[in-house]
Simulated assay, not measured.
Amino acid sequence: MDLATVMDRLAIDEVVTGYAVAVDDADWPAYRALFTPDGRADYTAAGGIEGPAAEVGDWLAGILRPYRVRQHLIVNRRLRIEDLGGYPGDRAEVRAEYLSPLRHESGEDLMCGGGFTFGLVRGDGGWLLRTVAAREKWRHAARHHG
């Protein structure tokens, strides 16, 4: 693996981690900054909406506001960088699983899991998200006592 590919892999991993941190910290300007100007997010397979990243960010801000604790663990990342005849290209895809424990202000604990597909493009300033699609596989809710 050449140095350029290693650097791309590290930069792409930073974008995916930045996505999880922005959502968990409710840092919606940082969330929007991770996307290309025409970036889109699709949460329909997780019970949400699909649309421009800024619009979906507003929706996420509203739906997650009552959750005092948010933690998105994005694991088992599988990265594929476009191959241009043995050279890294300007597009990449990350498929990863997530586990997300949440605590609602009412005291309800929600645990859900599923997968993400991140589509990235290389811009002048580095790698950015062009698409994000979430697909929830399961969820479990329980009342917290304590």
Score class of each variant (00 low, 15 high):
19 Y>T: 03
33 A>S: 15
49 I>Y: 10
104 H>T: 03
137 K>F: 07
71 Q>H: 08
58 D>K: 11
116 F>E: 02
10 L>A: 14
6 V>R: 15
19 Y>E: 05
6 V>W: 12
65 R>P: 02
93 E>R: 06
96 A>H: 07
97 E>T: 05
107 G>A: 14
73 L>T: 08
106 S>G: 04
95 R>P: 05
77 R>K: 11
112 C>Q: 11
44 T>Q: 03
23 V>D: 11
86 G>V: 04
84 L>H: 08
23 V>G: 12
122 R>S: 10
127 W>D: 00
106 S>R: 13
42 D>P: 13
111 M>K: 14
59 W>H: 14
23 V>P: 06
92 A>P: 02
81 I>T: 01
74 I>Y: 04
62 G>N: 09
89 G>W: 05
2 D>H: 10
59 W>Y: 14
75 V>T: 08
141 A>R: 15
126 G>F: 00
34 L>Y: 05
2 D>F: 00
124 D>P: 04
51 G>P: 14
81 I>L: 01
16 V>Q: 07
44 T>K: 00
38 D>P: 10
11 A>E: 13
129 L>W: 01
105 E>R: 13
140 H>W: 08
75 V>E: 02
73 L>M: 15
119 G>M: 03
128 L>K: 02
15 V>I: 05
131 T>Y: 05
124 D>E: 12
75 V>P: 01
144 H>M: 13
83 D>A: 03
120 L>V: 00
96 A>I: 06
109 D>K: 04
3 L>R: 15
52 P>K: 15
78 R>L: 12
15 V>S: 06
115 G>C: 04
22 A>V: 10
8 D>R: 00
93 E>A: 10
97 E>N: 09
11 A>F: 07
44 T>D: 01
32 R>W: 04
122 R>D: 05
51 G>K: 14
97 E>H: 13
120 L>Q: 05
7 M>C: 07
18 G>S: 02
63 I>R: 04
130 R>D: 09
54 A>M: 14
82 E>Y: 00
131 T>K: 03
101 P>K: 09
110 L>C: 12
62 G>E: 12
2 D>Q: 15
14 E>F: 03
64 L>V: 10
97 E>Q: 10
62 G>V: 06
100 S>L: 08
146 G>H: 03
7 M>E: 12
37 P>C: 08
10 L>F: 08
135 R>Y: 00
104 H>L: 05
88 P>A: 03
70 R>C: 06
108 E>N: 09
5 T>E: 11
29 P>H: 05
108 E>W: 12
93 E>K: 02
119 G>I: 03
32 R>M: 03
102 L>I: 07
92 A>D: 02
29 P>Q: 09
39 G>E: 10
9 R>G: 13
107 G>L: 10
16 V>H: 03
58 D>C: 10
115 G>K: 04
54 A>R: 14
94 V>T: 05
113 G>F: 04
80 R>F: 02
114 G>L: 10
66 P>A: 06
32 R>V: 08
64 L>F: 11
86 G>M: 07
41 A>Y: 11
56 V>H: 09
38 D>C: 12
103 R>P: 06
49 I>H: 11
65 R>Q: 11
139 R>D: 05
21 V>D: 08
124 D>H: 02
135 R>H: 01
